[in-house]
Design a protein around this nucleic acid. Structure first.
Lengths: 211, 211
DNA sequence: GGCACAATCGCATGATCATGCTATTAAAGC
DNA sequence: GCTTTAATAGCATGATCATGCGATTGTGCC
């Protein structure tokens, strides 16, 4: 039996969830609360497997609640069940330690599946939530929208080679060009990046995702 | 009709997928390839909605393939379909622009659902993949446990100053120490990081999050 | 054709760095 | 008390770099 705890202030939704869970095979709702404070004080006496956690609660927010839960029970399985679809809430909840993130409009059958999934180590997420999480990765490190300061491919190559610790001589040999050409390229890189030595150039290249 | 392109080197799997998709309502496999190179050259003539992309391919890897696809078609919907479950591959694929990530052991019915889901803006992921992605967020802020290679605070300061483009002389003045001391610290940094010049040290510092 | 620009090459010189070896002091650990 | 380590400092030298000035090619654009 998967033992579930619900924290949700809306009476209709809370009781509905409770009924749904108890009506499903293999799981039961062992407790339900209208706010985080009550849930946290009652927690030590309970041995829940999965938390269903609203975000918009009176008093302590659901996300704060998640932080407190993981403090008491590291590795707890927590499913956010909320109306909020904004990235702020999503990422905050996941950072706090939530395992999954479902929207309240999730159909009952799927919700039951999600609880089972989470209990077995999965991370159920509503479709559009998953897309937002994935999109986060695309933006973060691969932001090649940046100007690159107009560096040519050759200049980027040489800059990258520099970051690997190669000297002008080595770079020249690797690229089959003369050392003076390397010098010339790096000189241009410095101009474009507005720097005056290798370290600063490499640092800027990393910060701005050129390398 | 959702138009699907498959890139997969294993004949059995590729043809199986193709049959499965063509047997499903609302989608068809308009092309299939055994490697990325062929796929990319044929791409301009096709108007696919969803890519099914293997990772372990001969020649260009599937992840490199993804990067090339998004260059040609920004916003393309790409589903990774692979045996790799390691975080390296998962995150690289998502960073490159994949919309979803499925394991090859995914049952056919679920695969079809995933294609539809992706087409409609979702990000289908196998359960354990989703968990790994979610876990990434938990670690993210507390990932300051990184080795740092045993650099002392002073050494980190000097390394950071170096990355700002300061010369030994400037660093010495800023920290109110002698230039030979700066030299000495940097010498130790080089030893600890196993590098032999500023650029490599700065690059490593960025890669490993020391700075 | 003319213009801009990337990529190539050359030379010279003062500035800066990498590295070897040594040494002192204070704090931390056993 | 002894050992280790971080932080400080010194010296010397060959290697490497930063920068100024100049030059030739090929490509793409108007």
């Amino acid at each position: 039996m998967i033992k579930v705890i619900i924290t949700e202030d809306n009476d209709t939704i809370r009781e509905g969830l409770c009924l749904l869970i108890n009506a499903s095979d293999g799981m039961e709702c062992i407790a339900r609360f209208t706010n985080c404070e009550d849930m946290l004080t009652a927690l030590p006496g309970l041995k829940p497997d999965v938390f269903l956690q609203d975000i918009g609660l009176p008093g302590m927010s659901g996300i704060e609640g998640v932080k407190n839960i993981v403090q008491q029970i590291p590795g707890a399985t927590i499913l956010m069940l909320t109306v909020f679809e904004d990235e702020e809430n999503i990422f905050e909840a996941l950072k706090a330690g939530a395992s999954g993130y479902l929207l309240k409009k999730t159909p009952p059958a799927q919700l039951i599946e999600a609880i089972k999934d989470a209990f077995h180590g999965g991370s159920p997420m509503s479709s559009n939530i998953a897309r937002k999480v994935v999109t986060f990765f695309k933006q973060a490190p691969s932001s090649k929208l940046k100007e690159s300061y107009g560096l040519s491919q050759r200049e980027k190559d040489i800059l990258a080679s520099l970051a690997e610790g190669n000297s002008y001589k080595i770079i020249a040999d690797k690229l089959f060009i003369c050392i003076d050409t390397v010098r010339s390229h790096i000189r241009n890189v410095y101009k474009k990046l507005h720097v005056h030595n290798q370290s600063e150039a490499v640092a800027k290249a990393f910060k701005d995702g050129i390398i």
